[in-house]
Structures are given as structure tokens and as C-alpha cells.
Amino acid sequence: MKILYFAWLRERLNRGEETVFPPASVKTIAELMDWLATKDEAIALAFEKRDLIKTALDETIVEHDTPIKNAKTIAFFPPMTGG
């Protein structure tokens, strides 16, 4: 599964994307965030305030409790500030 990071998340983690292979026990985006945080201290720190992290699953913006199922791409990003 491909993970994308944007804005200050991308800068803090020093990468815009990576490929990960979470275990089958990881069923929702929230669980994916927990799992990523256990693997990487920088992610754990960046994900500390969960409500500041928005997510998109296969290019659709979704909530953290959304099941991952067979998602190809999951994106993590801060609250949006366009316009």
C-alpha cells in the first residue's frame, strides 16, 4: 500500500511517499496510524495530535474510522489552508 504525506507532515518525515505492508490485523485508518507510529518515532510524534491529521483513501477524503479494505493509496495531511 502506498502512503502519501503532504505539507509539514512531508517535511517533518523527510519523504512524500512510501510503500508499507501492514499486517492483516490493521483494519482501519486509525489502526494504520497506530501501526505506522510504532515503526517510526518521527511518525509517532507527527501523529500525536490525531485530530490535526486528515486522511484520504484512494483519493477520497475520509474519517479515521474508515476501513482500509483493499486500498491502494492512503494520504495523510494537515488541515487544509487553500483559497
Binding site: M80, T81, G82
Partner: peptide, 18 residues
């Protein structure tokens, strides 16, 4: 403003700021 994925970073003489 709130639901389209754009992020602004300002550059000033003192540095950069999201």
C-alpha cells in the same frame, strides 16, 4: 477553504512557516 487539499507556506525574511 476547509475541504480542498491545498496548503500554504509563507516565506519571510525570518524563515518559512506553514
Amino acid at each position: 477553504k476547509t475541504d480542498a487539499p491545498f496548503w500554504k507556506k509563507e516565506t519571510s525574511p525570518t524563515g518559512e512557516n506553514w
